[in-house]
Nucleic acid binder design. Sequence first.
DNA 1: ATGAAAGCGCTAACAC
DNA 2: GTGTTAGCGCTTTCAT
Lengths: 330, 330
Amino acid sequence: MKDVASAAGVALKTVSRVVNGEPGVHPATAERVRTAIDRLGYSRNESARVLRRGRTATIGLVIEDVADPFYAGLSRAVEAVVIDHGCLLLSGSSGEEPGRERELVETFCARRVDGLIVVPAGDDHTYLGPELEAGTPVVFADRPPGAGLDVDTVLTDNAGGAGQAVRHLLTHGHRRIAFLGDHPAIFTASERLRGYRAELGGLYDERLVSMRPPSLESVRGDLARMFALDDPPTALFTGNGRYTVTTLRALAGRRAALVGFDDFELADLLAPGVSVIAQDPSWMGRVAAELLFRRLRGDAGPPEHIELPVRLIPRGSGEVPSDDTYGLRP
Amino acid sequence: MKDVASAAGVALKTVSRVVNGEPGVHPATAERVRTAIDRLGYSRNESARVLRRGRTATIGLVIEDVADPFYAGLSRAVEAVVIDHGCLLLSGSSGEEPGRERELVETFCARRVDGLIVVPAGDDHTYLGPELEAGTPVVFADRPPGAGLDVDTVLTDNAGGAGQAVRHLLTHGHRRIAFLGDHPAIFTASERLRGYRAELGGLYDERLVSMRPPSLESVRGDLARMFALDDPPTALFTGNGRYTVTTLRALAGRRAALVGFDDFELADLLAPGVSVIAQDPSWMGRVAAELLFRRLRGDAGPPEHIELPVRLIPRGSGEVPSDDTYGLRP
DNA sequence: ATGAAAGCGCTAACAC
DNA sequence: GTGTTAGCGCTTTCAT
């Protein structure tokens, strides 16, 4: 900037004014400065600017895994809002490890992000205390923070969605409805289990519940075990998109109705189409990011707890009557 | 830092030493400093550090769209390598708009990223000149830079893969093989067209080629037009993952063999399974990021041009003989 | 083993 | 309309 100033024969401050589009610079001077800038290939050092102004115009996003379509959609929406506000997005995947989540958050904080959107992997967020006190707004998305922290959250109506899925299957005559989902330590999984259980009432049978990481082997084993029962399941409720796909693969010709949590591409092209409880990841991303920017603009109201509704999309797999035959690959 | 220093009764520099794990501090002093740090909730201001040291430990990544599974996989791989090197990832989606690509790159440069990985949307990258001269390493991934710029690239063997697809279909007796792909302004699309055409030789018929954005309507229209010909296609080669899916949807019962460029989840669960030319987005991301860090470590060799091979995965849809019947939903 | 001082590149506050 | 000065929080260099 100093070089540009001397090249243009003006003071450093004038260059600063031009670079920032501040008023009060003679057009001719401004032009001279711009020429010098181009000639020297100058571009403002954002780090220095940040240091001086105290605002980084950067938002941090911690998700579970960008390669998961749900989080990819969420990221894209957050990114769009962030860019709209003239900011940049620093993002990282926790890979479901609390340690990495914390590392990412702390690194983002050290870089003085203006705000943070977190899909937590762990359940202890006391480490966020200092940052929150320092006034950095934080929005939790998809999962709430651990105990003792009351901050903005944007969640899905997980229990309601699970209940809806079960009700749908009950309506079609099913009484033996299995649940395959993630480990209950994961908030969304335990909420969906809760909704499933509540809706099922007296029909609940823990032998029809399997909650662990969705590897093909484990799902295959669990299905084999369930189908070997005297009263095997006639319907399945899968706890998330990855689970649904893995289950479809592990089902391999076995007959059962199926409703999955999370919509996924091609669900409509399978035969039969896969009925799902659909969330909208972009919506969640947008809502979370907009809430964050509202805080950034100074909204200091009490923490908001937004719950996004889901909707059932019937496509065939969930509408198979309990006494009918059904196979993934007829 | 000043506060910590006075709280611990030491000089600022000593705090700096402790924070950075520099040697030459008495353990007792270090302990006093650490206590003060914890008590005050201090965390180093990364912006100031960057300003002083000149390195930001940040890598910029510009892709087309995080929500596209290909780029999501690439992002994840890049992120992993970046984190391994103790850096952070700043990323953004160009949405296939050259203007946004440039804006993102320039914003990243203004923030003094240490290096850049770019999936270009445009074909003029002269604007990168100053940055390259300033020594910022840049790696182009998936698509090469515009004319006049010789930098590191990591591409897929697009033409070879397309040729492989066509050869596979020819082997199964097909002579009327259509190509549905993106606009040829997109490098990968034109390369795949080139491979398709070369392999087809005299069998090439431009009436069987459609290259435009993959909207369901346009694909549907193009297919209708092609199937209305006196000698309609008996096989289709789709130019990328999104195209394949859209085509499957638009096909709606019409009979044709199909090979698609790009693998996608559930390709194996459709009936028949969809045969594809598979790329590995994680591999591309990893290779690009590792090349970038090699440059960052000082490797000043001539620009490298890496071409990643693809592999054909036969799953059924590409192995239908030309005289057989084939329907997506039997 | 510890500290003092200079300065990274910029913007805010205040002259002129 | 333009320039001067101070200082953001840190690391670097050089003393002690």
